[in-house]
Design a protein around this nucleic acid. Structure first.
Lengths: 343, 343
DNA sequence: CTGAAAGCGCTTACAG
DNA sequence: CTGAAAGCGCTTACAG
């Protein structure tokens, strides 16, 4: 590997000057600047990032933190489970690369106490962290709020001198979808939601209640079921619900993938959607269009969320730009899985 | 941040000895080793990874390379498109973390010539790269084959002194699924495959031909359609095919997500699956069970592929263990989307 | 505008 | 078994 020493020699200057020229410092004459760039080109020099990071005491690397249960990030991305996060990551990757930062998934330290986690980031000179949160009880989240490492939380309202957050307006989405069903004449609606320990779950629940309340309705506790955020659990919960009672005309599912489990349970029992029962999803994953019937759902704007989070993180790191919390609007998408309540 | 200097002072030894004690070198007396570990614990010391990487001239970081079209890795993971790669990544992440390596998605260098790519890895002291390949023409693949950086290719048969590969037996899977249809009495089978520029596409095509040939059948060129690896394209291709002719009793799709598009096209035309037409997928994504009808497909063992790739990479990096190419068997999974050919 | 020198926090022959 | 010294490849006050 060619070093700055060799460039310096070829250009007839010192390493210090090479460094200055390459880092766009003023105070380098145009002429030597040119000589240096020529030398760089002819030698094919590229600065050693590791040495740079050590000397500068910082790096251009952003860590991806995932606080779900207890496994790694991508492990959690089983599509039936965190399909939504996948779309998010896609946007995050693009934005991060565009800003010239590396994205790192650090190997977990042995002890994963709060301090160990922060230290593992610090010893890597991580510039900032993008934290995808589904389990607010994860101690590392609290650690990040306090630590002097720029952090943007997604789906967790953490704030501090070095922390801000970005999230979709889950509550409003849930409100919209509930109101949509009510407008179609549904009065007895079942809610099959993901666990409300996560913010995204709690907000959905509140939004549904709000939607009912706006029309003077109350949530029937017997028609509310919480289960895991995946197709399988939703299928099981829907099956149990259907075996128990049938006094409802619509089911609001916590996510599109959960709606898939619900549809399957209905299909097995010969119930037609939306003729017998209306079903709604949440997320608007690209699959929605292709399942039968195409799902009415709530669209989460992954582009705005991902880009908003990355921009805020970089603004915090580079100390410029907007770092205020961002709540991204959600939007009802009506397709064919919802229809008028049967009379 | 506490440094080894401070540990040394507290333990009353030199930094050299601290380093030796911590890196498990022999030649440190039990007694001083203990003193050092006590100092480490009481100070909460953790070695600075960046400094370590510079001094050691290597790191414990594995880069993820993705050679699809021209965007980033996660960007390519739109589920309807590279659903299979997602399952792979999940296993890769787990294995990499377990081995104590970081996973890095390097920001692309400005010029992405061959040299720039290799250099960007070198200046980061990347220990090895895991290359997910869908576009064999990507020049970076050729660069990796030659570069002295340990590389494991997935879905590309690259080999060299520092390169090996892991892939599923696509061909055999395609053969099995074709034979399965033939056994059910199908004779006129349409093939709606992904582009055969990628190895995974070419092998599927060959496998289908082989499956036909084994029963003395030849592929009808008019019943072979290539399109993009996604639901939308497959839907369009299936629609075009159906509008053109109906002289087939089965459709082999290139992936499960493509099968979804095919099912949708059939559904729109009122054709029943499998009564009128049998449909098969490929990949066995978790969704298969929940779509109606549940898909007959070919299972790719993502666990074996991911784990096999990571183990080989680490074996190359640490210069021990098996680095021979690995071809993972595939398996036909029969569900309800295939049935006897209508008479 | 430029160079000599010190420093970033480790590791590793080299002596002893 | 242990320490002093040099080195990894940069950056950055400090002088000039």
């Amino acid at each position: 590997m060619v070093t700055s020493e060799q460039v310096a020699r070829l250009a007839g200057v010192s390493r210090a000057t090479v460094s200055r020229a390459l880092n766009g410092s003023a105070y380098v004459s145009e002429e030597t600047k040119k000589r240096i760039h020529d030398a760089v080109a002819s030698l094919g020099y590229e600065p050693n990032i590791v040495a740079q990071n050590l000397a500068r005491q910082r790096s251009r690397a952003i860590a991806l933190g995932s606080f779900f249960d207890d496994s790694g990030l991508l492990t959690q991305l089983e599509p039936t489970r965190h399909y939504y996060h996948l779309g998010l990551l896609k946007n995050i990757e693009t934005e991060v690369a565009e800003a010239g930062y590396d994205l790192v998934l650090p190997s977990r330290p042995h002890g994963s106490s709060r301090n160990d986690y922060i230290r593992s980031l610090q010893t890597r000179h991580i510039a900032g962290v993008l934290a995808l949160c589904a389990n607010p009880a994860d101690p590392r989240i609290a650690a990040l709020v306090e630590a002097p490492i720029p952090t943007v939380f997604i789906d967790h309202m953490g704030q501090g001198p070095h922390a801000t957050y970005v999230k979709p307006d889950y509550m409003d989405g849930a409100r919209q979808v509930t109101q949509h069903l009510i407008r179609l004449g549904h009065r007895r609606i079942a809610f099959l939601l993901g666990r409300s320990t996560a913010l995204s779950g709690a907000e959905r629940l509140l939004g549904c209640q709000q939607g009912l309340a706006m029309s003077g309705l109350a949530m029937n506790p017997g028609l509310l079921r919480e289960c895991g955020w995946n197709t399988e659990d939703a299928y099981a919960a829907a099956t149990a619900l259907l075996d128990e009672r049938r006094d409802f005309t619509a089911i609001v599912a916590g996510s599109d993938m959960m709606a898939l489990g619900v549809l399957h349970a209905l299909y097995e029992r010969g119930l037609r959607v939306p003729d017998d029962i209306s079903v709604t999803g949440f997320d608007d994953i690209d699959l929605c269009k292709y399942i039968a019937p195409p799902l009415t759902t709530v669209r989460l704007d992954r582009q705005s969320i991902g880009a908003g989070a990355v921009r805020r993180l970089i603004a915090m790191i580079e100390n410029n730009g907007d770092v205020s919390p961002l709540v991204v609007p959600t939007k009802l998408i009506v397709r064919q899985s919802t229809g008028p309540a049967p009379s």
